[in-house]
Design a protein around this nucleic acid. Structure first.
Lengths: 144, 144
DNA sequence: CCTTAGATTTGACACAGTCAAACTATGATC
DNA sequence: GATCATAGTTTGACTGTGTCAAATCTAAGG
């Protein structure tokens, strides 16, 4: 039984070729759109893994299932489609380049959510603080 | 010349009934979608202000123009359409209720962007730190 | 008043995601 | 190993949100 199969069953999900392919694709390409995951799964279809293509609905179901059990996380940066990445147990934020769209992980120094104290408004109970830094990545800063 | 007219011309934009109506609508209803702005502008059409309805494209143009000159700000919370609000010169963040979707303003204690220091990744130059607190608002916490 | 750059409308279109219902495969049980 | 119920997947239509391009209209300076 492969590692991925064990991981899935541990979370109460059946191990299917498509789920394993999606996890594999996200391990190699973090911060990708659903369409890009589909393309990657499609490429795996040609390889030795022998995965048939996954329908659009099937892809969204897989991503939602994996998200529900905590294996996958999604972010929705302004101006782009939802991006998916593996949830590796750490709490991290993101930095996004306004020029090329690159998404970088930024480790959270605090560790557990909500990592940022919230001033006012009284009565609101935060369970997560989501932080996105917008700016220019090293490559784009050098190239300009 | 009304205040809104003065404000628009100060920013280099012509003062049109639709632009004034959009500013007026956002002043009364912060954090609304484009569709809600359109509905509100439509309501003003019946009142004494005598504004004709605004086409969808026209609305997006107005919102973009107002955004470009700094009168309007938009946020795109995960799971909802773009929300618009007046840009009042302050730097604030948002708290969003997972239960009812309410959006609350959270004043930024630092004031000027980027208000949050960024640990690593070296080379990335941030110009803005966007923070969203997710949780439960006072009403929903009380009602549960 | 006239003019014209700037503002708005119109209608077609694209993308990202959702819904419902039919169909298929996993893996527990015999 | 074969059977079967349930979990997973496909199909196809559909919706919401936003964009493009080209024609038309209007605010406001001269």
């Amino acid at each position: 039984m492969s590692d991925l199969t064990a991981l899935l069953r541990e979370k109460g999900l059946r191990s299917t070729p498509h789920r394993r392919a999606v996890l594999h694709a996200l391990a190699e390409h973090p911060h990708v759109t659903a369409a890009e995951v589909a393309a990657e799964v499609g490429r795996l279809a040609s390889g030795p893994g022998a995965v048939s293509e996954l329908s659009r609905q099937g892809l969204y179901n897989v991503l939602e299932d994996l998200g529900r059990v905590g294996l996958v996380r999604s972010i929705e940066p302004a101006g782009s489609a939802t991006l998916f990445e593996l949830q590796l147990g750490d709490n991290h934020h993101h930095a996004i380049c306004r020029s090329c769209g690159a998404v970088l992980d930024v480790p959270c120094s605090v560790g557990s959510a909500p990592c940022l104290d919230m001033p006012s408004p009284a009565g609101f109970v935060p369970d997560e603080a989501e932080v996105v830094w917008w700016g220019t990545c090293a490559e784009c800063a050098a190239g300009s």
